[in-house]
Design a protein around this nucleic acid. Structure first.
Lengths: 340, 340
DNA sequence: TGAGCCTTCCAAAGCGCTTTGGCTTTTTTG
DNA sequence: CAAAAAAGCCAAAGCGCTTTGGAAGGCTCA
């Protein structure tokens, strides 16, 4: 069933039917009702390719997916997607993932923009002075960054959580509990979120005249194994920390294992706080010792990003509005006063 | 730069240029070269919407993403996606995720097919007599099922791993080690893979005159917490199993925790085998006691599905070819002879 | 009552591509 | 060497929608 057929059976022109369906004012309400009704009854669905060709709008939002043999998609992605999808569904938006060579995403961005394949894109895990951001900004397609970049002379729309604040709070708590030697097990330190987290920890320590030594900071991809390795390295050091702030629950899993292997206990020998993105399949309260966390649902962020993208597409949102969400500090059994 | 402009500057007709670009035979090789060259030099890219409208092909593969507040996307999805994306990239295919109400995916399938939005779709986590499968089969769009269904009177193309064989092997190993009381911690038992796995375990037990008691089988969404709960329930029973086969590494995490909470040890008191889909962020060899697993990379499966979808789109693959991958049984420290 | 203004609809022109059918040349063939 | 076949190219007709530029008819209002 296409427009032509539909309009023919209604004895109306395609113009009128099209307008009736798309809510244009210059059509009689009575007529509109008739059209709407017939459309629904016959299950008429405008052909998106045709519409796209005519309007240039696609009803899809894009994401460039870095791929490659050695490239692992972040497990957070799926949770973010849950939220995004949930919102997108209610607004008839689809999401198109364009796989790209991790080392050359630019080409793909240019392609999807030039082709008008999508109405908007979002960018995640930005780094300082991230080229994707600069590119997308000049290409002039609506976009939102999930996270933040740094070092640009222009503003841009983003949604981020207060990583610095969160880790500042976590570290401050530990310092207040008497810990003098703090360590940070961070994510990939080329990403802005990791930089912000480190900044937060440093600031909290500095406030009490403490510092974060070179040996007390690790950064690596967030895997269980890397968490373990980092913890081993830290805890076997002569100046082993008495408290660790950790960037992810998955890494915390490894930290806990290391602590055990070394015959130590939490929170007796070591206090531990980790960041929790709220996975349904791994919850901090279910750690051997319930884990204190800085918590922020990445899923909600996904939904919000979708919402703002939709707003931008329809012109309801404009400009470079940045949005920073506060992060909860949830205290559970894994923190205690400094030993000794 | 569009076809018209390009053909104009070459003093050729759009027809010829189009044909030259798309590899049709009725164009002089010399002319083709000229065209190709000019196209590359001017960065000409055919507008996909226009092409889609004209050909009906979209160069995209579709996936209907079940969403909803209470719906969690399986963390396996992202690994599968890694593989899929990796292949898709090399073939200029995009992936469109159409979010749908988890309880009504049919509408969405109909939509994307009717709209010719995608050239092919894949279906994952099928259940017996899965309606999506029946629907897609009648809709006549190329598709591949990742996993298998049951109870249909037609064949369909799929890619699955030998779940039954894998769990049969795992259980057989345990039986050979003298275990009489085996338990199975399974995924959602409405899904075919879970049914197959259960079947495998039962078959292995039956071969030695043993059975899988009602109390020795649990099934739930694969979260750490559910693994823990299941293990607690099993191990606190008067007929506690001496060996457990577990459907996922994430659940195994919970099993290990439960074992510890109960003051038991692996493999002293309990042997444990789990299925490993090969996540980069959680590896069985890094469990407190290295975990024996049935292993199959879900990522490779993703790549293979993409490959077959591409083949189907271009007509290279036809018919209802099913493909079943064998699963490795990897023995590590978590299994031992039955206690006592 | 007739000029001017809405209201409501329509015909037709794109959007950028593919593809059908046909028209020249050139090559082959008996 | 004429007739048939093949090669190489083109004009134009879609694909299904939106949107521009009217036009017909009914109103208002002096």
């Amino acid at each position: 069933m296409n427009l032509k057929q539909l309009s023919h059976m209604l004895s109306l022109s395609q113009t009128t039917v099209s307008r009736a369906l798309n809510g244009y004012p210059e059509v009689n309400e009575e007529t509109r009702r008739r059209v709407m009704d017939a459309a629904k009854r016959h299950g008429y669905r405008p052909n998106p390719s045709a519409r796209r060709l005519a309007t240039g709008k696609s009803g899809m939002i894009g994401y460039v997916l870095p791929t490659g043999n050695a490239v692992d998609i972040d497990p957070h992605f799926v949770e973010f997607l849950s939220g995004l999808g949930d919102y997108a569904r209610s607004h008839e938006l689809d999401l198109v993932l364009s796989p790209a060579d991790a080392d050359d995403q630019e080409t793909t961005y240019r392609r999807i923009v030039a082709n008008r394949q999508v109405d908007a894109v979002y960018i995640s895990s930005p780094r300082p002075a991230d080229r994707r951001l600069a590119l997308v900004n000049t290409l002039g397609i609506p976009f939102i960054v999930h996270g933040r970049s740094e070092g640009f002379d222009f503003d841009y729309p983003y949604l981020d959580i207060d990583n610095e604040g969160a880790f500042h709070e976590a570290a401050r708590l530990l310092v207040q509990l008497g810990h003098k030697r703090l360590a940070l097990i961070n994510g990939d330190d080329r990403e802005t979120f990791a930089i912000h987290r480190e900044r937060g920890v440093r600031r909290a320590l500095a406030a009490s005249g403490l510092t974060l030594g070179e040996r007390h900071i690790c950064s690596a991809t967030m895997t269980e194994e890397n968490g373990y390795r980092a913890a081993r390295r830290l805890l076997e050091d002569s100046e082993a920390p008495t408290a660790i702030v950790c960037s992810s629950l998955i890494m915390a899993l490894g930290v806990v294992r290391a602590v055990r292997d070394l015959g130590l206990t939490i929170p007796g020998d070591l206090s531990l706080v980790a960041h929790d993105d709220v996975f349904p399949w791994l919850r901090p309260e279910n750690f051997p010792v319930p884990l204190s966390t800085t918590r922020s649902s990445i899923r909600l962020a996904g939904a919000r990003v979708a919402e703002r993208l939709a707003a931008r597409i329809s012109g309801l949102e404009e400009g470079a509005r940045g949005e920073v969400w506060p992060v909860d500090l949830v205290i559970r059994g894994s923190v205690a006063g400094a030993p000794g």
